[in-house]
Amino acid sequence: MKSIEELMAIKEKMQSKVSLRNSDAGELRVVVGMATCGIAAGARPVLNAFVEGVNEAGLSDKVMVTQTGCIGICQYEPVVEVYEEGKDKITYVKMTADKAKEVIERHLKGGKPIAEYTIGAATK
C-alpha cells in the first residue's frame, strides 16, 4: 500500500530539487479546456497525456500545464492553447492523447508548432 512515509520521502526529494530549478520555469504554458464541452469531447485523457508526457520528456521545469473553462469554440474541443513569451498563441483543436504526445515532442521539445493540428488548418 502507498504509505505516508513514501509521500514524505518524495517531499524531501522535491524540496532539495526546488532550489536547483532554473529560471526557465513556466517559459511555456499549455492550457487545456476543461468545461463540459471539452470533457465530453475527450479533454481528460488529453490533459493527462500532457501532464505525464511533459514529465517524461524532462520538460517539467520549462512547461506548465494548466486548465481553463470554455473558450467558446466548443465544436473544436478538445482545445489546447500553447503560450510562449514573445510568440503568438498556438491553438490546437480536436486533440487526442496521441496528438498531445506529438505536440510535446515536436512543438514543446522541438520548438516547431504542428500546423495541421491548429485551428487555422481546421477552419480552412
Partner: peptide, 27 residues
C-alpha cells in the same frame, strides 16, 4: 491531510505527488 504531510513548499500538482495519489487510489 496530504497538505499537512507535505507542507507549503510542495504542491499537490507536482508530478511526483500526483503519481503517488494515483498509485494510492488505484491500490
Amino acid at each position: 491531510e496530504l497538505k499537512q504531510v507535505l507542507g507549503d513548499q510542495v504542491s499537490l500538482a507536482d508530478f511526483e505527488i500526483l503519481s503517488w495519489i494515483r498509485g494510492y487510489l488505484d491500490e
